[in-house]
Each structure stands twice: as structure tokens, then as C-alpha cells.
């Protein structure tokens, strides 16, 4: 369920990135201030473990399909929420860079969905509440299972909201929710069971590893209010900056503007970059934005009448597109030849 760059708008991607970046900075500070510097190599290999563990799978009884381990909950239990969030962020970064699994801009969303919800909501408010101060085998099992499932549900809902506000997909809210939540309920149950199995194995053989983070030590104790306030502030600020920067593309942005200012009137300030951009757009009458105006909300879709796009424009677009594509390939090819001959000299 990794978000992809192609499915989000710059405003949504940028805003969520800002939130994730803020969290990364905050967690980095927390980890650095931690007196126990053993956490630094431990985070590194734990991340590599999550990665390696995702490569081993198991058969789900009765279905023939296979499942694998989800990372964030196991990391939270072992490392505490701050280090777990950083580790999860690093795992997702490697996936984004090497496997193009979720792009660079969508990485912010993915870190938020798969890191923030499990580490900062599900872990402290579900797992720790159930596991309690004196954890037992059963409490840990139930706590892990519940926290994994709910953490993933929140993450999936995050995907729905981010996609919706980006307005690239036509999926209406209701359908999307009905599609995403049950799928991720199934995934969550499987992941939760695996996580519980691994954690209970560790609990049986090396209980001190789990007790350390479960006890109300500095690493497990933080104020959610603080995190949420910082998060909101980051979102508001970037929302503001991005709305100013990207107002040439209003569809995805309306939401951000609407939420940051509380009104839609601010949408078209008559000065600054926006007016400059409108002027540029005014001069280039065939701008695509104006031919293909997109609907404001994905759930009440009302596309512009088709008549404004005459077939001539579309044919020209196709012909020109093909031409440029050939040109791009040619440039690439020519450069390759040139560098090839040079390296032989």
C-alpha cells in the first residue's frame, strides 16, 4: 500500500512530507539526547532486519497465499517509538530509492502512514495500554495483535485521504474506504499474528529486551499533545507556502488553502507569484490546464463539457507527443554513442 508519486498532488505530497520531516527531526533529537548510544547501531541493524525479514514469507493456512512481517510495531516494542519511527523511515527510504516502491515525494506520505500511526498512536495508546506495566505473555500477544491491526487501519485510511485530496484518482471516498479498509484488515491480522509470534519468542528467550521499552522509562514516555501540535504547525506552514507556490494548479490545493485559511476567498490573491503565473498563462492561451479543467472534488465529479476540447487539439497533441518522444529517444541514443566512442578512445 505504498503511495506513488503519480497518485498525489504536489500540495498533498509537500504537506505530508513536511509533517514527516518534522517528525524525523524531532525523533532524531530525541534519539541523540538519549544517554544510551547503543541505540545507534541497534537501529541500523534492526532496519536491515525488517528488510531481510520481508524477504522471508510463510504460507497462510487455507489460502495458499503468503504473508510477511510488517515492521513498525516490532520496532516500537524493541526500540521505543522515536527510534522505531526513524528506523521505519529509513526502511521506506531504501525501498523508495532502490525499488521505486513509492516515489520520492510520496515517501513523505508513506513514512507518515506506515511510521507515525503505528509508532505514535498504536504503540503508546493501544499496545502499552494493553501490555501494561507488568507485561505477561498473553497481554503482549493481544496488545501486539490489536496495535498492528489498528495501526495498519489508520495507515490505510491515511492512504485514502491523501489520494482523495490529491484528486488524481476518480475513486469516490466511500468506495475507496470500502476497498482499502477490509483488505488491510486482512493484512493487519496476518501481520499482527506474525509480529506477535516474533515478539513472544523474544519475550520467552530474552524478556529484558522487551521490558526495557515497556517500563515507563524516558524512551517510552512522551506527550502526544506536543507531537500533534508540532505536526499541525508544520502542516499549516507548508500548506501556506505551497499554496503560494503552486497556485497555478488549483485543484489539489484548494483543500490546503481551505484548511489553512478557513476560507476559499484567499485562493486568488491579486499579487505576487500567483498573478505573475496567471499573466504567463494568459499569454499562452492553449495551456492544458484551461482545456482540461478538473473537477473540484473527486466524489462529486462534474467534468467540463467535452466540447471545449476539439479533436484537432488532441490530434496535434498526439502527433507532437510522438514526435518529442522520438526526439527524446534520439537525444539519449546520440549521447550514448558519443560517450561510448569517447570512452573507447
Amino acid at each position: 500500500m505504498h503511495m506513488a508519486d503519480a497518485l498525489i498532488s504536489p500540495a498533498v505530497g509537500g504537506t505530508v512530507w513536511a509533517a514527516s520531516a518534522g517528525l524525523i527531526a524531532y525523533c532524531s533529537k530525541k534519539v541523540r539526547d538519549d544517554v544510551d548510544d547503543r541505540i545507534i547501531p541497534l537501529m541500523g541493524v534492526a532496519g536491515a532486519f525488517i528488510f531481510a525479514a520481508q524477504m522471508i514469507n510463510f504460507t497462510i493456512p487455507g489460502t495458499g497465499s503468503s504473508g510477511h512481517l510488517g515492521g513498525a510495531m516490532i520496532l516500537s516494542v524493541l526500540l521505543g517509538p522515536y527510534a522505531a519511527f526513524l528506523t521505519m523511515a529509513s526502511v521506506l527510504t531504501v525501498q523508495a530509492l532502490f525499488f521505486a516502491d513509492g516515489g520520492l515525494l510520496a515517501l513523505g506520505c508513506n513514512i507518515f502512514n506506515l511510521g507515525f500511526f503505528p509508532c505514535f498512536i498504536a504503540y503508546p495508546f493501544i499496545y502499552k495500554k494493553i501490555a501494561g506495566e507488568k507485561p505477561s505473555q498473553n497481554r503482549i500477544l493481544i496488545g501486539t495483535l490489536a496495535a498492528s491491526i489498528l495501526g495498519l487501519q489508520m495507515g490505510a485510511f491515511g492512504v485514502v485521504l491523501e489520494t482523495l485530496f490529491s484528486g488524481i484518482s476518480e475513486l469516490p471516498f466511500g468506495t475507496f474506504v470500502l476497498m482499502m479498509q477490509p483488505i488491510h484488515l486482512a493484512i493487519g491480522i496476518v501481520e499482527g499474528m506474525v509480529t506477535a509470534a516474533v515478539i513472544s519468542f523474544v519475550w520467552k528467550s530474552r524478556p529484558e529486551l522487551i521490558q526495557k521499552t515497556t517500563s515507563p522509562a524516558p524512551s517510552g514516555n512522551f506527550s502526544l499533545k506536543y507531537v500533534l501540535t508540532a505536526l499541525l504547525a508544520a502542516a499549516v506552514i507548508t500548506g501556506g507556502i505551497l499554496s503560494w507556490f503552486a497556485s497555478s494548479h488549483p485543484d489539489g490545493l484548494e483543500w490546503a488553502v481551505f484548511h489553512t485559511t478557513g476560507s476559499e476567498e484567499l485562493e486568488t490573491p491579486g499579487h505576487g507569484v500567483y498573478s505573475l503565473l496567471t499573466k504567463i498563462q494568459g499569454k499562452t492561451a492553449f495551456l492544458p490546464d484551461y482545456n482540461f479543467k478538473t473537477s473540484k472534488n473527486s466524489d462529486i465529479k462534474k467534468p467540463e463539457p467535452a466540447s471545449i476540447i476539439d479533436s484537432g487539439t488532441s490530434v496535434s497533441g498526439l502527433v507532437g507527443g510522438a514526435l518529442v518522444l522520438v526526439l527524446a529517444a534520439f537525444i539519449g541514443f546520440a549521447l550514448k554513442k558519443r560517450s561510448g566512442t569517447r570512452s573507447h578512445l
Binding site: M43, G44, G47, A48, T87, S90, V91, V94
Partner: peptide, 11 residues
């Protein structure tokens, strides 16, 4: 943050 960059390198 350096902690994060180092984490990436270690990972």
C-alpha cells in the same frame, strides 16, 4: 538530521 543520515548508512 545526522542521526537519520547515519541510520540510513547503517541500514
Amino acid at each position: 538530521p545526522r542521526v537519520f543520515a547515519v541510520q540510513l548508512l547503517f541500514l
